[in-house]
């Protein structure tokens, strides 16, 4: 788990939340540092949105504490949330406003002066591709447009911390890619991005760190490179040969770094004892035994594999 450091922009310590008798969060702790893109993963009902709503001071924790830039948002929302941008999951925005009017109002809530508001509105409306829709009532927007406007609203105060709950839901693939780049660029500018998402591919592409929650408990918190290692028992090399012989199999099984070999037709699944790319060594062994190699692949390790294993309660290796 990440240790809570003085660099932390978001600090969640020992957070516990009950809904009646139901324990929605059970001593959840993690810390997010400046410039990280933190992916917060978990199945439906795991406690992701409860965590986010507690981070924003919308829910009061039964135990534990949240600090945003060192300030508790439940106790001092004015200062804690001044540097926070929040885009909720499938937002319902005020339909009596146009997109620009809502941005104007949101800018006022952050205390931005008139000139800054005007500049920000023009810049952000353009950034999210709503230039022609800015003066139209939000009631006429599609789901994807509302989502895009919600992202623009979250950026109006030039936040240090962006909290996004499923930010690309409802967006078309082009917009999704655009926003992925946007979040990556924001982190490069030193902003901290906290994303709750079901889209593991998206998280794997843009996040530097990952937190996984299941049934209210954190099951993993660390760099994305670590999560793949932590929940992957072994690495596997798949070799397709012209012909598989018993001599070939027994030869490979005797190698120090091979754990086991499974045969499926003319394909070998060679389980490795270490998490290393040993395709070079394996191909040499196959050539030594006069094998004709058709293909050789290191089995791709995806965040999905690690995620599913983590949720099943798999041990971290």
């Amino acid at each position: 788990m990440n240790t809570l450091s003085s660099q932390s922009v978001i600090t969640v310590s020992d957070l516990t939340k009950f809904y009646g008798d139901f324990k929605a969060l059970d001593a959840v702790s993690f810390a997010v540092e400046k410039g990280w893109v933190y992916g917060y993963l978990g199945p439906n009902g795991a406690g992701k949105t409860t965590t986010i709503r507690t981070m924003l001071g919308l829910l009061k924790p039964d135990q534990g504490e949240v600090q945003i830039t060192g300030i508790n948002p439940t106790k001092d929302p004015v200062h804690a949330l001044q540097s926070v941008g929040y885009a909720p999951e499938l937002p319902t925005l005020q339909t009596f406003f146009s997109g620009e009017q809502l941005m104007e109002f949101t800018g006022k809530m952050f205390g931005l002066d008139k000139l800054t508001r005007k500049e920000k509105i023009n810049q952000l409306i353009d950034l999210v591709g709503l230039k022609e829709w800015g003066n139209k009532k939000i009631g006429k927007y599609s789901k994807g447009m509302v989502q895009r406007l919600s992202v623009a609203l979250s950026l109006i105060n030039d936040p240090l911390v962006l909290i996004m709950d499923e930010p690309t839901i409802g967006m078309d693939p082009e917009a999704t890619a655009h926003f992925r780049n946007l979040f990556t660029n924001l982190s490069k500018q030193g902003k901290t991005v906290f994303i709750s998402s079901h889209l593991l591919d998206e998280v794997q592409r843009i996040c530097t760190h990952v937190g996984m929650i299941n049934r209210g408990k954190m099951v993993f918190d660390g760099p994305i490179t670590q999560v793949l290692e932590a929940f992957t028992r072994k690495w596997v090399v798949e070799a397709e040969l012209e012909k598989v012989t018993k001599r070939m199999i027994s030869g490979l099984e005797k190698l120090d770094y091979v754990e086991d070999v499974e045969v499926e037709g003319n394909k070998l699944r060679i389980g490795l004892k270490e998490k290393k790319d040993l395709r070079g060594e394996i191909s040499s062994e196959i050539f030594k035994r006069k094998g004709v190699l058709l293909s050789l692949n290191l089995q791709k390790i995806t965040l999905e594999d690690a995620y599913l294993r983590a949720l099943r309660g798999g041990e971290q290796k």
Binding site: R53, L56, G57, L58, P77, V78, H79, A80, L81, Q82, V84, Y86, P88, P91, T92, L93, Q94, T106, M109, F110, G111, L153
Partner: peptide, 15 residues
Amino acid sequence: ERGTADILLSKPITK
């Protein structure tokens, strides 16, 4: 009912 309380109260304002 509309879910806009979340949006308003996640801004720098006290209850």
